[in-house]
Amino acid sequence: MFNIKKIEKGKLNLNIEWSDGEISNYNYFWLRDNCPTAHDKDSNHRMFNILESSKDLTAQESKVSEEGKLVVKWSEGDHTSYYDPKWLRENCYTLKNKRKFISPYQLWDSSLEKNLKSITVDHDEILNSEEGLLRWLELLHYKGIAIVKNAPIEKESAFPVLNRISHTRQTFFDTPFEVINVPKPNNSAYTAHALRNHMDLPWFENPPGYQFLHCLVNSAEGGNSSAVDGFAVADYLKKNEKEIFETLVNVPLKFRDKDYTQETIRNFHATAISLTKDGDYNDIRFSVATMDTLDCHPDIMGKVYNAHHKFGNLLHNNKFQIKFRLEPGDIFSFNNRRALHGRTAFNPNSGHRHLQGYYMDRDEILGRLNFLKK
C-alpha cells in the first residue's frame, strides 16, 4: 500500500509524491471528472458533466485526510472530492505512460505444427468446468488459435460450447454457415477448390473477431487445413522490412463483397496491418480473393503492390504457416483478424467434407476472459 507523502499544487495539476518516491501528476479536469461521487451508485455510469466546468477549474484547497485520502476542495461548484490512494495509484496515467508496454500476444510460427497438442482443449472440459473454459479463452486471446477436441458431430451441436463464452454473431451467411461443396457457389469456401490463407469478411467495417469451424465429416481426399499467425509475419516485417511494414500500416487497401446472391454492395477501405494505441498489432486484413480494384495514388501503386506481394507470400511461407487435418469432432477456433486460415483442394467424389462455421465478436472473448480472471 502506497501512501501520499507530499502534495504540490501546480497551475494545471496536482503533483503527488508517494511514500516510495514515485511522483504522480494529476490534471485538475481528470481529478474532477473521476470524483467518486461523479458516478451513479447502481449503474456506475458517470452522472457529473465535466463540460459544465469552466476552463479555469482548479483545486482551491488540497490535503491528506486522517484516513490517508486525498481531499480536494474545488474552486467552483461548491464541491469537495475524496480520493482513495489505492485507486489513485492504480489509475495513475503518469506512471502507466512511463512503463514499457509488453504485448500479451504469444507469436507463433511453423514450429507450432510439431506441438498442436499445446493448443487443444477437450470439449467436455470446456462445457463442464470454468478451468477448461478459461484455458480455451486464454489460447484464443493470447495465441489466437485453438482446436477443441471430441465435440459432438451432429449439426448445430457447437452451440452449447460456444454459448459458454457468449452469443454468436449473425451474418448474411447464417449461423451456422455450411462449408460444403455446392453447385453454383456464392463463395469459394463452398467449392472443392484450394483456399489461400485469408481473413473472412474483410469488406465489413468490423469483420467478425473470431471464427469457429466445426468439423462434422472429413472423409474426402485433400481438404487439409492451414493457418498462419499474421501478427508474427507483421512482426517479422517490422524488424526486417521497415518500408514494406510502413506501407502496409499506412496505405488503405480496398475490399469488396462479391456475393452474387446479395442485394447489397459492401466495400471497405482498410490497411493490411492496423495497430493499437500502444503500437501493438490489432488487425491483419488480407484476402486475395476479395480484394477489390485498388485506387491508391498513382505514385505509390507500385510500392503498394510490392508490399502486398511480400506480405502475401510470407503469409503462405512454410516458415510461418502450419498445416493439419481436421477430424470429425474438432472445432478449429481462431482470431479471424489475426490467424489467417486456408485449405488444400479436395476431391468431392472421394468422400464427404462438411464443416459448420460460426462467428463471434472479439469483445465477447475478451470480456468473458476478463470476467473469469477477475
Rank of each mutant, 00 (worst) to 15 (best):
R343L: 10
A158H: 02
Y105W: 14
K254R: 10
N187A: 10
K323L: 05
V72Y: 04
T58V: 07
Q106M: 02
H352I: 13
N282Q: 15
S75W: 02
R99C: 11
I284T: 04
V179W: 09
L112A: 01
T344K: 08
A194N: 05
F346V: 10
I23G: 03
T271S: 12
I16S: 00
A232G: 05
K69Q: 12
D259S: 06
Y260V: 06
F255A: 07
D292R: 04
K86R: 11
G312K: 02
N13S: 14
A189W: 11
L134H: 07
Y82L: 11
Y210S: 07
K96M: 13
L201D: 09
G77Y: 12
V251K: 11
L253S: 06
R266T: 08
S75K: 00
S62P: 02
L88H: 01
P185W: 02
G144I: 00
N349V: 10
I119S: 00
V249R: 11
T37A: 10
D84Q: 08
N336M: 09
Y236A: 00
L216G: 07
D295F: 10
K96L: 13
G279F: 00
F371R: 05
A146M: 03
M47P: 01
C296H: 13
K310L: 06
Q170D: 11
A345C: 08
P36I: 01
K96A: 15
S62C: 14
S110N: 13
K69L: 10
Y26R: 04
A220Y: 14
S54A: 03
H167G: 08
F173I: 03
I331R: 03
E205P: 06
S81H: 09
R337C: 15
H354W: 15
E138Q: 12
N197K: 05
W74M: 05
S65K: 00
N335I: 05
D229T: 02
D122I: 05
D280E: 11
K374I: 09
V228T: 09
T80Q: 06
E241N: 08
D122H: 12
T94Y: 14
K117N: 12
R266Y: 11
G144V: 01
N115Q: 14
D33A: 06
R325L: 05
D295E: 15
Y26H: 13
M301T: 13
H198W: 08
L213P: 08
